[in-house]
Design a protein around this nucleic acid. Structure first.
Lengths: 208, 208
DNA sequence: GGGCTTGTTGGCACGTCGCCAATAGACGCG
DNA sequence: CGCGTCTATTGGCGACGTGCCAACAAGCCC
């Protein structure tokens, strides 16, 4: 940040949001590669070319900054798309395809957000993740045409959540462990979701 | 630890493993209810009725103690059972039933280990969790009779991992959110696993 | 160019961790 | 039964990281 010129300012003044975004970007990167305790505010500040005090000025506490990073990471998940038309099979196919594309596109971020790299979880983090999951589930329910007037029943939402757990695990197997190709993951998830919709959900809605 | 008697020893001397286990138990409890950073070694020591120094003497660093706790928590997962006989449907039914029973029995521990309460994740923790998942998957593969000479192919193991992700999510929906009854979770998982075995896996083994 | 706004700095106070030398229970031996 | 030894246990020191705040200065407006 220092320039060779003698009379040059020792530091430059940035717009509030601009500086905030800069610090956030550094924090995002560091928290992605190391876990919470292994990242110090001094390191974040150093990477951003500012002092530790400024980080605190913008985010209050390290923890708040951390939660902000998590919140931003899971925000990539819901992708707004128009509801697809066609047969159930086609809609499921498309929904899965979009999911996989999203995951692939945000590969690094997504893996980090899911806890593959390093992450500190607690009640707050879990709340953020839970909300993101709820959004993703709602998106999936809408995408394959499962919505009912008055919203989907609890059991259906729960089943979709369960399926989302499978989708996450399958995506990890594909992107992280390379034990599944994209096509295989697609097949696996499509087949499972179709079974879920045709055979399992109707039975679920009738039982307790 | 202090006793009213005047000449009573200010502290009692315990067997190495005994004291270690005692500290570990306190750490396990505290780490289950709060996240890593919110628990201090002083608190752990206080609960155990010893001083902070002793905790360090036994476990070296707070982090090592933490990993020990995580390691112990995931150890409850593999339940050794004889491989079941009968039709595939019966075996799947039994495997799922055992899984749910195990989860229910270790409810608190399991939820904590899965990150529901509070947990700090990083490369080390993830490695422990990954190994536990591998064990669980192997147990499931054996339980439903999917093993092949020379071990299951990667794609099969990956698919089982994916299913395990669904099982975990379904269990959370059942135990944590109460949006699924045990019977519903059982139905959901049994149906999915049967589809997986009959329809999806054969196709998976033939593709890339 | 002077004053004002406010982004930015540097340092102080506190809490926690990692470590180690000194202490004192407990046990075996004479 | 008292002594010496072993080692579990203590208490405190040094270092580091966080939270916070008052002073400073970069850039804008007049």
């Amino acid at each position: 940040m220092a320039t060779p010129a003698a009379s040059a300012p020792r530091w430059t003044r940035l717009e509030h949001d601009e500086r905030r975004e800069q610090i956030l970007a550094c924090a995002r990167r560091l928290f992605s590669e190391r876990h919470f305790a292994a990242v110090s505010t001094a390191q974040i500040a150093c990477e951003a070319g500012v002092t530790r005090g400024l980080v605190h000025h913008y985010f209050g506490a390290k923890r708040a900054l951390y939660l902000e990073v998590v919140r931003e990471m899971v925000r990539v998940r819901p992708i707004p798309e128009e509801v697809a038309a066609g047969t159930p099979r086609e809609r499921v196919d498309l929904a899965i395809d979009r999911w996989l594309t999203m995951v692939e596109r945000n590969r690094g971020t997504w893996l980090a957000a899911l806890g593959a790299e390093g992450f500190g979880r607690d009640a707050d983090v879990e709340a953020i993740l839970a909300e993101a999951r709820e959004t993703a589930a709602a998106w999936l329910i809408a995408g394959v045409g499962l919505e009912r007037p008055g919203g989907a029943p609890d059991a259906v939402r729960a089943a979709v959540h369960a399926f989302a757990g499978m989708a996450e695990a399958a995506s990890r197997e594909w992107l992280e462990h390379n034990r599944l190709s994209r096509a295989q993951a697609h097949d696996l998830l499509t087949g499972t979701l179709l079974t879920l919709i045709h055979d399992l959900l109707p039975r679920l809605e009738g039982s307790t």
